[in-house]
Design a protein around this nucleic acid. Structure first.
Lengths: 114, 114
DNA sequence: TCGTTGTATCGATGTCTGTCGATGCAACCT
DNA sequence: AGGTTGCATCGACAGACATCGATACAACGA
């Protein structure tokens, strides 16, 4: 099989071939989730945590924003497939989904001989 | 010097350390430019072009959108540092700026032993 | 110089988004 | 059971954004 672009579009890159409309909608939705400073900081705080998990009770006080606002941003990150969460007793823990990050990174990476 | 994070923040990654507010604003602005399907397709059409340059006259008819709308999206891509352009006679040519793409890709790339 | 073509800018408009206070739900503690 | 705490959802509102038609500007050709 060709190694330039997968038939199902799983490995296309920005500089390999023009994006079709459907793929563009999917990818843009994820990039849109990264297009806010608060969400970018939230994702970074989650992804850089040693144990891989962060309690919401640590994320909320890190911003000068109301608690519903942080919850809203976390929801958008979750809907974008960038993080996932689980309730454990009283607290809710979030962790990053590296597969989505790597997918975006692979899409943006330009060929070395560009 | 440490190779984990540069002191000026030029090489920080999402999973290396929590992003400070200022860096988050800068990066989010670029991601926001990618958070639209039309802009993502425009960038892909420009970055994947063999000669590296695309005439606007080729980009506009590829969408079912009015000409000012395409011009607006190209302006946003330019302001984000993702593309640049030059007028050459009657036509205007756009090309991608791989440095910005690579910066974003590097930011998103998670460590191999994550 | 005048008309034509390619592209950008302007102004308006409908929709989306970030933010908040109020409220609801889940889990814990006494 | 009742009170408390952590987090999500709801409804509202101001600001931002995508889109368009109209228009302006730049370059070319006759």
């Amino acid at each position: 099989m060709s190694n330039q672009e997968e038939p199902d579009g799983c490995c296309s890159t920005v500089s390999a071939a023009p994006l079709d409309a459907e793929q563009a909608v999917e990818l843009a939705a994820v990039f849109k989730a990264l297009g806010d400073p608060v969400r970018l900081r939230l994702l970074s705080m989650i992804a850089s945590r040693e144990g891989g998990e962060v309690c919401v009770c640590e994320l909320t006080p890190a911003f000068e924003l109301a608690q519903p606002t942080i919850s809203h941003h976390l929801k958008l990150l979750r809907q974008a497939g960038l993080v996932d969460c689980e309730r454990r007793g009283t607290w809710v823990y979030y962790w990053a989904l590296p597969a989505t990050l790597d997918r975006l990174a692979g899409f943006l990476r330009t060929p070395v001989n560009a």
